[in-house]
Design a protein around this nucleic acid. Structure first.
Lengths: 218, 218
DNA sequence: GTCCGTCTCCCCCGTGCGGGGGAGGGCCGT
DNA sequence: ACGGCCCTCCCCCGCACGGGGGAGACGGAC
């Protein structure tokens, strides 16, 4: 029976590439895709893949956290193959500590990608050494709004609605008019949203909304 | 007759992804691939593609140089669609100066990628990955942020820098500290940005930044 | 029944924000 | 040399925003 793989990457292009590469193999089958780590656990429970190809950087829940979550909550967990664009020792170390079984660069050749999947599926570990690229900076504390956005699931319906309106650039008064409530009510909801997202002001909340995929550009 | 495309990217995975996305369209045909800018010129001469999807960073010859080389040496050159992973103004301006016809983020959704190829093939330019018309339709009150976002080209360097900081959720005081200028100077730039983008407040400006592709989620 | 979460509305209050002005110096093209 | 653009900094001023409280009504959960 074939090796079943679940693809987890926020970029559809990368998912399409991995799917094209892996499905060219008769003994490998891509059984599902996810765009964020937050969606992984239920998918793993339902699809029971042999291998999860897990991206590191994702909006709602990153690959490291998702790896921990899967291994902690799912009995008889799949092998985790962490996929990333460039080598980063911190990520490597963190991923291994989280329980990942392998490490793979996106710039690897198709044969290497296939090989990695087969290897971890067979129970072996795979680690790519040779750290060449060091993408410095990736400036500052930009991770704060995104990580705080993890709380998005805990937004109430009304708060989510208010956040959607905020993300359209509406003022409190405009939101109040649109939702047919008082401005004070909107203020309450906005404050709750800011608190739950860990945002300091509405701008940071809107940024979190975009970064987490809660609203989409275009 | 279909739009013919030549893929130029050093990562096979990305090429596979682009091929999968583009060949799903009946009117688009991928006629060739290259792993480096250095291989582009002879391929363009032989294959005569309508569009070249050109990666920016490649080992032997980068996308900017390759674009210059193609446009300089090939008569009746193809349209150049520069593909990049993240937004970088230097690359944008350099590529435009080199004669590129459009830009495309690898993070873009498949529909956007297809749209970009069709657009440049038709002779239009595509400065922003995201379609702006849908925005105008969505903002019933005239699409202020969206349409105004087109004026991004007219933002001065300093204003663009300030907008980037705004899009990271920083306050005026924080931006001032980071750029080592006074808060009043930042306020001046912010006001200029708001005016040029047609935004009422910084939140709307940040929304415009996301919607126009000036900043990239994730 | 009681508790708890949600939605709704209200008060005060400080301040960051943005509008509308102005002004000086530097660089560049003509 | 001059005008024009950019960057820098400053003033006043109104107000929307956000924090920190509280409170009543409804519903489901226990």
């Amino acid at each position: 029976m074939p090796v079943t793989v679940l693809l987890v990457d926020d970029e559809p292009l990368v998912r399409a590439g991995l799917r094209a590469v892996l499905e060219a193999q008769p003994d490998i089958e891509v059984v599902g895709e996810a765009a964020d780590g937050a969606a992984v656990i239920p998918l793993v429970r339902r699809l029971r893949p042999d291998v999860v190809a897990m991206d590191v950087r994702m909006p709602l829940m990153d690959g490291i956290e998702a790896t921990r979550a899967v291994l902690r909550t799912v009995p008889g967990p799949p092998k985790i193959l962490v996929v990333t664009t460039f080598e980063d020792d911190e990520f490597v170390y963190e991923a291994l500590r989280a329980g990942a079984d392998g490490f793979l660069l996106k710039r690897a050749r198709p044969a290497e990608i296939v090989h990695a999947v087969r290897l971890v599926a067979a129970g072996d570990s795979l680690l790519f050494p040779a750290s060449v690229r060091r993408l410095a900076a990736r400036y500052g504390d930009g991770g704060r709004p995104a990580r705080a956005a993890l709380e998005r699931a805990r937004l109430t319906e009304r708060e989510a609605e208010v956040l959607r309106q905020m993300a359209r650039g509406l003022s409190n008064a405009e939101i109040a008019a649109r939702l047919v409530v008082s401005a004070e009510t909107v203020k309450s909801h906005v404050s709750a949203v800011l608190a739950k997202l860990g945002a300091r002001d509405r701008t940071q909340a809107v940024i979190a909304a975009y970064e987490s995929g809660f609203v989409e550009p275009g």
